[in-house]
Nucleic acid binder design. Structure first.
Lengths: 338, 338
DNA sequence: TTTCGCTACGAAAACGTTTTCGTGTTAAAA
DNA sequence: TTTTAACACGAAAACGTTTTCGTAGCGAAA
C-alpha cells in the first residue's frame, strides 16, 4: 500500500529538489507553471499533508492549544471545553486536553508536558489541591517566561494574569434577591469549604443581598459541605432541625438536587413549603421534578472568551498587552422550584 | 527572565557538545561522573525538559493519541474520554481531542490533521453524517497504511478493524426481559431512525425478547424519533392514542426523561400505570423523580479497553495482529420507574 | 561581443533531539 | 619504548519542513 509521502519522497520521485517541492506546494512564483502543477498533482494524488511536528519545529509554532481541567465528566467543564474548541478550531487551532484530577502533581506534570514545544498557549482551571496548598510556582515560572496562558474559573490569587471568571458573588446575590422577591425569608445556604473560592464568593454575594434586605442567616442554616464525607447526610442535617428554612440556595447543581430529594422524602412541597435554587445550569436542573431554578453560569461563553484572549496574546506575542480580566455574568433561570 | 533552555544552550553554557549533554541527561556511562552531575544540576536548576516536537520528529513517536468524538458535552462521550485518558496517561500517553460535531467534513479534517505525525494512534467514534452517507474513504486510507486506529461505539461496517462496541442488541433484550418480568405486557419503544445503528440494534434485541415471550408490538407503539424535529411532540403522539402502552423502552436517557415528564403531565403514575426504562446510565436517570431504571452502558470501560488495544497495536507495530472486536456488555440498573 | 537581468531551480542552514561512529588522551600491558 | 585498550568526549547525520541565498541558463540590451 502507498505509504505516507513527504516532501523528500516527492522530490526524488519527481527528480526535483525538496525546496522546489515546498515552494511549488505554496504556489511560489519562483516555480514554473509546469513543474508546479506536476508537483501539486502528485501531492494531491498521494494525499500529501505536511508533517505537523516538522512544521512546528521549523516555525516554532504548533497551532495547538493546551487545556488543563480537573475533570471532563462534568457538565460545566465539558461546556467550557466545547467553547474553547469552537473558537480554537475557527482559528485553525487544535487542542491538547489534559486532566489534572484536581491533583497538584498531575497539574505540574501536564504543565511540564505541554509547555515544551507542544502548544502555543495554555488554558487552565487550577486544581483544587493547588489552591488548597497555595502552590503556584509552576504557573509563576511560565508567567515569568511570558508563556501565553489564560486562567478560567478557578484562578491563582495575587498574580498578574489573564483570566476569565464567573461573577460568583453577583450570582449569589441574584439568587438571594430572587428568593426574597418570591417572598421567602428564612433562607439557608449549602456551600463548599473555605478554600474553594467560587463557593465562598457565591456565599458572600448571597449574604450581601440578605443584609440589604435586613435579613440574616442562622448559623445552623449555613452548611459547609465537606466533599470527603457523604454529602447526603450532611445536607440531611439541615432538615433535621426544629425550625426549617423556607428557601435554600445551593452553590451547585448537585447539592440542589440532593436537597430537593431529601425535602420531598420528608414530605415537603417544593416550592410551596420550601424553595430551592441551584447554581450551574446543567442537565440535572431541567429534568428533576419539579425542575430547578438555577443561577446559570455560561461555561461555553467562558471557554470561547478565554480562547480569544489567548489567541490574541499569541498573535501579538512580545507586545506588552496589559493583563485582562473578563467577568462572565450570570442570570437566574426561573423554573418550578421557586 | 530565564528563557527556556535547550540542549544546545546548556552545551554552550557549559562548554561541552550537545551530544555530551544529551548523553549525560540519560545517565550514559560514556560521560564521566563529574561532567554528568554538572550537566544534570544545570538542567534541573533551569527546569530543562526535552522539546516534545523534536523528540517526536527524531523518534518517529509522539507519545500522543488522537481522539475524535462527535461531541464532548455528553455524559457518555465524556465518560469514554475519561476512560481513554486514564489508561493513556498510565502509559505516559497524552491526548489530542478533536470534535467532529457529527460532520463528515470535520471528521476528515481532523483525521488529516492528526495523522501527519501528530499522534501515534487514533480512537474514533464515527460521525453520524459519515454513517448516513456511508463515506469511509478517509478511514480506509489509514487502514491500508496500517495506521493504528481503534473504533468505538459507532463503527464503519464491513471493514477489517479493531473495535470496541456496546452490546446494544443484548441491551435491548435485557430491557424487554426486565419489563416483562415486572409484569408489563403492552410495550412501546422510542427509538432512532434507521441509520443510527445503535438504535436499530437495541430495537432488534428488544423485539427478539418480545417474540420469545409470545408478545408483539403494535406499529403505533414503535416510535422512530426524528432528531431534526421537535422531540417532545413526537413522543407526545405515543400518549395521545386511545390505547396506551403500560411499558416504554427508550433507547436513550433523553427520550426516557421526556417520556417520563409527559406521562406525569397526563396524570399517569410511574411505575404503577406505566413503566419506563432508558438506555445509557447518565446523571439524568439518577435525579428524575421517580428515578429511572436504565440499561447501563459502561463508557469508561469502553474507553480504557479501546486504549489498551490501541497501545498494544502501537507497541507491536508491524507485527500482524488479527483484528479484535471487544463487546462491552450492559446491565439493567433497576430504579424506581419500573 | 559583452553585460545585464530574468527565470527557475538547488544547496544549505535551522528548528531540538538522539545515536552512531570516530578520535584524542591516558594508563596499562608487552 | 611501543602497542593496546579503555575512557570521555565531539562530529555529523537524521527526523520533515521552510527560507535565504546562490547560480546556471538564456534572451535582450549595449
Amino acid at each position: 500500500m502507498p505509504k505516507k509521502v513527504n516532501i523528500k519522497t516527492i522530490a526524488s520521485e519527481l527528480g526535483v529538489s525538496p525546496s522546489t517541492v515546498s515552494k511549488a506546494l505554496k504556489d511560489s512564483h519562483e516555480i514554473s507553471e509546469e513543474t508546479r502543477s506536476k508537483i501539486q498533482a502528485y501531492a494531491k494524488f498521494y494525499h500529501y499533508k505536511p508533517n505537523t511536528l516538522a512544521l512546528g519545529l521549523r516555525n516554532q509554532k504548533t497551532m495547538a492549544l493546551g487545556v488543563i481541567v480537573p475533570e471532563i465528566v462534568h457538565h460545566f467543564f465539558s461546556r467550557v471545553i466545547s467553547g474553547i474548541e469552537n473558537t480554537a478550531s475557527q482559528n485553525d487551532y487544535n487542542l491538547m486536553i489534559c486532566l489534572s484530577k484536581d491533583q497538584l502533581s498531575k497539574e505540574i506534570q501536564n504543565i511540564d508536558m505541554l509547555t515544551n514545544g507542544s502548544v502555543d498557549g495554555l488554558l487552565v482551571t487550577v486544581a483544587k489541591e493547588s489552591l488548597e496548598k497555595c502552590n503556584f510556582e509552576h504557573f509563576e515560572r511560565l508567567i515569568a517566561q511570558d508563556f501565553p496562558i489564560v486562567f478560567l474559573d478557578r484562578v491563582p490569587p495575587n498574580l498578574q494574569i489573564d483570566k476569565v471568571i464567573i461573577d460568583d458573588s453577583a450570582g449569589g446575590y441574584k439568587a438571594a434577591k430572587h428568593l426574597i422577591e418570591k417572598g421567602y425569608r428564612k433562607l439557608a445556604i449549602l456551600t463548599t469549604p473555605q478554600h474553594v473560592t467560587v463557593g465562598v464568593d457565591r456565599e458572600m454575594g448571597f449574604l450581601k443581598a440578605l443584609k440589604e434586605s435586613g435579613l440574616t442567616i442562622y448559623p445552623k442554616f449555613d452548611i459547609k459541605v465537606n466533599e470527603n464525607e457523604p454529602i447526603d447526610s450532611q445536607i440531611e442535617k439541615l432538615f433535621s432541625q426544629k425550625e426549617l428554612p423556607d428557601g435554600i440556595f445551593a452553590v451547585n447543581e448537585n447539592y440542589a438536587s440532593i436537597a430537593l430529594k431529601i425535602a420531598q422524602k420528608r414530605g415537603l412541597k417544593v416550592p410551596d413549603d420550601i424553595a430551592i435554587i441551584g447554581f450551574t445550569d446543567g442537565l440535572i436542573s431541567k429534568t428533576t421534578n419539579p425542575t430547578l431554578t438555577t443561577v446559570a453560569q455560561h461555561g461555553y461563553t467562558m471557554g470561547s472568551q478565554a480562547t480569544e484572549i489567548l489567541l490574541n496574546r499569541i498573535y501579538n506575542k512580545n507586545e506588552a498587552i496589559p493583563n485582562q480580566t473578563i467577568v462572565i455574568s450570570t442570570n437566574v433561570v426561573e423554573r418550578e422550584s421557586t
